[in-house]
Design a protein around this nucleic acid. Structure first.
Lengths: 140, 140
DNA sequence: ATTAACTGATACTAAATTAGTATCAAATAA
DNA sequence: TTATTTGATACTAATTTAGTATCAGTTAAT
């Protein structure tokens, strides 16, 4: 069971790189090289993040990408939602045969509880937090 | 993001059906019909569960499957591991470029923490618990 | 002005995983 | 002896994930 797919993983790493270079434009090329992410793949991820207003870009020579939002407001939950869709335990758990009556389906209840836990755990992890942890580790 | 795939989902439902008919052999056919699971698919899942000693079978006419273990000892975590592999947040998060040094990788730390939380939440959910919840709901 | 270094947009392919089907042999109850 | 059932295994289809390619347009530097 894989919780983070490559695109979410790459997106997090790209955002960390951008957060570390706050205020400067970083090219896709340099991010790809620095983080060891396939260049063209990264480009599609960056565009997706622009669409979600996480980053901005500047075209042309010396262009690149820059973090738009406060790193502390970007959560892993958000990134998972963007690249892997909303967290959902199982659609089919809720169906007739087991639930009998959808409205009183106990599995649904159990499952939504876990879903909440998972989501709130990932919400605690922001790009800002990761960056600080990373810097702290590097200082050692 | 899908946490439970169909096979895990189906397996849980099949186990609930078996747990509800404790001590009797239930045929794959009847489970499939009752739980609305594709018959041949279910058969492969049942065989997998036999291999993991969750259930036993009896061949021939009037044969079928029966729960082997105490329903309270079968956790959703176990089923996820069987049908979706061990919970792992991301393999690649741990790599050189971000971690610098694998042993002090902060992301790894953060991620393993979440992994633990996810796993322990799913461990709380046993077939026994689900069955009791289900029966309680049905009595209403 | 021209060129090199960039992003925007989008379409495409490949690989892996998930979901589901099919077949035939062997066992057992009636 | 036959219908019903599992054991074993191989196969196909659909979907998702991962990655590539292309070309147009923008900008900085020369």
């Amino acid at each position: 069971m894989k919780v983070l797919t490559k695109n979410t993983d790459y997106a997090i790493r790209a955002l960390l790189a951008l957060a570390a270079e706050k205020g400067r434009y970083l090219s896709a090329k340099s991010i790809a090289a620095g983080q060891d992410i396939p260049y063209q793949f990264l480009r599609t991820l960056l565009q997706e993040m622009i669409r979600h207003n996480l980053i901005v870009s500047k075209e042309g020579a010396r262009g690149g990408f820059m973090l738009e939002k406060d790193p502390d407001t970007i959560t892993v939950t958000q990134l998972i939602e963007i690249f892997q869709g909303k967290v959902q335990v199982s659609e089919c758990m809720f169906r007739k045969q087991i639930c009998g009556n959808r409205s009183r389906c106990v599995l649904r209840h159990e499952i939504m509880r876990i879903e909440q836990v998972v989501q709130s755990e990932f919400e605690k992890v922001t790009i800002g937090k990761l960056l600080r942890d990373l810097e702290a580790a590097n200082r050692k």
